[in-house]
């Protein structure tokens, strides 16, 4: 589902990635949303790189749409944990980077749809870094569920 380089897995558009133990997940975001679900006791993390809010009946790729990616992410993580787990979510992305009428609101629509679906699944969102006009690099550690957000020309932000 995603490409791994020495313990770090890059999760690209429409993909879902998983990490455990000392592994990390990384993704570069524009208007897409990086949605991370984490369980500290299991030291297990999953990340969906969500492109659009709704699938409108399309099923492939599952990670591309919020309404297909979130159930898939939960299901895959529960399988890996071997039981149903109380996940917590962190979210980043949803920027509006260049001027364009057609895609101006996609970023925030992605964010809003993710929040709505997470509420339906009863998953709390514990930290976010969304919106704005700049792209982000999101790096996630499975060890402690920490999330680093990097924006070109700015200091690194830790999502607690």
């Amino acid at each position: 589902m995603s490409g791994a380089v020495s313990g770090r897995t890059n999760v690209r558009m429409g993909q879902i990635g998983f990490a455990s133990g000392e592994q990390t997940l990384c993704t570069l975001l524009g208007s897409c949303v990086g949605l991370m679900l984490y369980s500290r006791p299991h030291r297990l993390v999953g990340l969906a790189h969500i492109v659009l809010p709704d699938s409108a009946g399309k099923q492939v790729p599952l990670g591309k749409f919020a309404d297909t990616a979130i159930p898939e992410l939960i299901s895959q993580l529960n399988k890996r944990a071997g039981q149903e787990v109380r996940w917590v979510a962190k979210m980043a992305g949803g920027a509006s980077m260049f001027q364009t009428a057609q895609t101006m609101n996609i970023g925030m629509r992605n964010v809003d749809r993710c929040r709505e679906l997470l509420r339906q699944f009863g998953i709390p969102v514990v930290a976010t870094h969304c919106g704005g006009q700049a792209g982000r690099r999101m790096t996630i550690s499975a060890r402690d569920g920490s999330v680093q957000i990097e924006i070109v020309g700015q200091a690194t932000i830790e999502l607690k």
């Binding site: 208007s31 492109v51 659009l52 509006s96 690099r137």
Partner: peptide, 23 residues
Amino acid sequence: SPPRFSREYAESAVEFLVMGQAL
């Protein structure tokens, strides 16, 4: 439109650019 200057991660920028088609 008038051009706009920015410094961005390459993948983030291209991701946003293709969004108009990804819809």
